[in-house]
Design a protein around this nucleic acid. Sequence first.
DNA 1: CAAGGTATCTATACGGCGCTTAGATATGAA
DNA 2: TTCATATCTAAGCGCCGTATAGATACCTTG
Lengths: 209, 209
Amino acid sequence: MSEAKSIEPRPYHHGDLSSALVDAARRLLEAEGPSALSLRAVAREAGVSPAAPYHHFKDKAELLDAVAQVGWDVLGVQMAAARDQVEGIQQLTALGVAYVCFARENPALYRVMYDAARDKDELPEGVQENKDSAYCMVRDTMIAHGADPNAERHLELASAAAWCGAHGLAEMASFKQFDHLKQELGGERAFFEAVLNHMGLFPKPHGGC
Amino acid sequence: MSEAKSIEPRPYHHGDLSSALVDAARRLLEAEGPSALSLRAVAREAGVSPAAPYHHFKDKAELLDAVAQVGWDVLGVQMAAARDQVEGIQQLTALGVAYVCFARENPALYRVMYDAARDKDELPEGVQENKDSAYCMVRDTMIAHGADPNAERHLELASAAAWCGAHGLAEMASFKQFDHLKQELGGERAFFEAVLNHMGLFPKPHGGC
DNA sequence: CAAGGTATCTATACGGCGCTTAGATATGAA
DNA sequence: TTCATATCTAAGCGCCGTATAGATACCTTG
């Protein structure tokens, strides 16, 4: 009607709907869980029509990819921080524990991250190639603390095992089966450490124990 | 109208719709993948109306639970068979490899199995309690080959680590990241064995190396 | 500053989904 | 034979992902 308002709260063009949608998705994810994360709900949360997201993302999967990428970035930062708080071979355990803790504290986000990866049968590129990414940190830390960088096969195997172990633990960490064990060990974090240490998280230094 | 046909191909009452629905779901799962597994599609596949399943299952989740249970049963059988083909400590590796192979050969079913478990934050009862179930087999085999059954905590930890490791490997086995490693090691099965052996799948015999 | 192309958004619609309700049909016990 | 009960169908609700067409604001070009 009139132009009484000098500032519209939401102009016709949003400005940066793309990242606003990702933010809205993260908000929804935290508040309502992964099952509530419909494209329409995200659009509602962002205050736009159900069709608006299609101008910024090819489909729902592409939006979820963007959300997942944010998750990987945050995970990388948290892992690096945990690593830098200790020294020596302990850094490997610190990386693993940080990984599992992230998954535990952001279960919905972690699920989106892995669902996206599974659909493509691979982790996102950044996770493998970026020097500060999760996978590379594990590898580099192994090399820095005893693993023979020339024993390529062994190093790869150790990284693979560590990654699989951490992911498996992350996914099962919420299961009630382990409540007893967690309690006995003095908390969830201690449980994570114990399991990861029990696995071959450390590279075996040049030829078996 | 007339009673010309002596046998109706599908009488009004199905007879055993409950298990027919589970079978239909498994068929769909194998043919089309998990995303195609809608309740309506299952009903179509079984040749009944979309509402019929609700007389046998409370909701979609309960149907999927039944499908998952079949999966756990089959997995148990395959693991037992693999274990019985070898002897000694190798039985543990055999169990692990059988587990991962099952997940690899039935990816859609495996996903339904774990999605159901995640929704309830626990593995189904049968998996833990039944003597022939997957989890118990690992535990018992550990005891049979070197693990101290009195070191309860250690045994539980070893079981947990083995289970997490196997699950993690099962979920990541399809990732392209590992193609190179698989090839170098001479096949997927060898890759599974190598990763599982690298992890703490074996119980450490009474106090570490 | 005017004109018009382009990017962005809304409105509307389609079919499929999980699930509910009401009513039809067959079964089995009295 | 009767009739309660178990099993199924038909129809419909609100949600979903997505496609299309048209409205609106911005941005260049002159």
